[in-house]
């Protein structure tokens, strides 16, 4: 037990949490934007997966930032596609989302097969690039806590800092700008918003496109930093966990970010645990993030009823 606590309190663990949180945080911020305007985006998982594969393939032939941008673009296009089918063709948004997930699961394997020349498992023979890490070792100069700060915050992907900034930016957008107010109004009570001359469908389209772009960004971070290269089904439920973070975070950017960090922490724990407690079966450790998500969802939702 002491060994676990020691690990959790170490600076290296904080760094690991930041690392595991980043992809989930992007996806959950995306989930938040579409959930706020009233279309729960269950396709985050598939959008992350497609975003990850796209950025890996593009980055094999172009600079890393082009790969990231391609991940964002393909995610945004998937969001637009969902909006088209959900809003224009009146299909249920959850079915549309699941259709995207199913296409993603099969489609990524198919495309990977062709991009790698016959490998259906990994992109190991594609020379894909990584997102560079931001070196903050100048923090060492701070007396006392400098080295600890360096260990925690140096060497993360550029996108990690973008994610942190986006939490603030989305909060500012939602709570300090007129367009953000409209966004929240549509989610709260679409009829009233419509009476005030706001087109709910326009905002829902934006919400879905933004959520797709952010999920694609999360996928890029996953396949170009957390892991370098694409593996079949590499998102492994992160998109669904991100959706849980949106619900757990009470549809607020800061709450969502806190929930994402919570899930990131348990994922980091599940990575660290096999080294500390080799006697615990791997399957149990692997299921920790999912158990935590479902429990957190149940407990937090109950409070909401009581309130």
């Amino acid at each position: 037990m002491n060994a676990i606590i020691e690990t959790i309190l170490s600076a290296a663990f904080v760094a690991a949490v930041i690392r595991t949180t980043t992809p989930v945080l992007f996806a959950s911020l995306g989930g938040l934007l579409s959930d706020l305007v009233g279309s729960l985006n269950v396709a985050l998982e598939g959008m992350m997966l497609i975003g990850a594969l796209t950025s890996v393939i593009v980055s094999a032939y172009a600079p890393w930032y082009v790969g990231v941008l391609a991940g964002i673009a393909v995610g945004g296009m998937l969001g637009a596609l969902m909006a088209l089918f959900h809003l224009r063709f009146k299909a249920d948004v959850i079915l549309v989302g699941f259709a995207v997930n199913i296409v993603a699961a099969g489609g990524t394997v198919t495309v990977l097969n062709y991009a790698t020349g016959g490998d259906k498992g990994t992109s190991i023979n594609l020379p894909s690039k990584a997102i560079p890490a931001l070196d903050l070792s100048f923090l060492n100069a701070i007396p006392g806590i400098g080295p600890v700060l360096t260990q925690m915050f140096s060497g993360h992907s550029y996108l990690t800092w973008l994610a942190a900034f986006l939490v603030f930016a989305i909060w500012y957008f939602l709570y300090r700008t007129p367009e953000g107010l409209r966004f929240r109004a549509v989610g709260e009570y679409p009829a009233a918003a419509e009476a005030a001359g706001i087109s709910p469908n326009r905002l829902r389209t934006y919400g879905l496109i933004a959520s797709g772009a952010l999920a694609g960004l999360g996928g890029a971070q996953l396949a170009m930093f957390n892991f370098v290269g694409f593996t079949r089904d590499m998102t492994a439920g992160r998109g669904f966990i991100a959706l849980g973070a949106v619900l757990l975070g009470r549809r607020h950017p800061v709450g969502t970010a806190i929930a994402a960090v919570l899930f990131g922490a348990f994922e980091a724990l599940s990575i660290a645990l096999p080294g500390i407690l080799p006697q615990v079966p791997g399957e149990v450790i692997h299921s920790i993030p999912f158990v935590v998500t479902v429990l957190a969802l149940m407990l937090s939702s109950r409070r909401r009823i009581a309130a």
């Binding site: 439920g237 959706l243 619900l247």
Partner: peptide, 14 residues
């Protein structure tokens, strides 16, 4: 508990 069934059932799959 008013927990969203989509997320909880998907988590149970894993």
């Amino acid at each position: 508990l008013n927990a969203n069934e989509i997320v909880s059932s998907l988590m149970l799959n894993y």
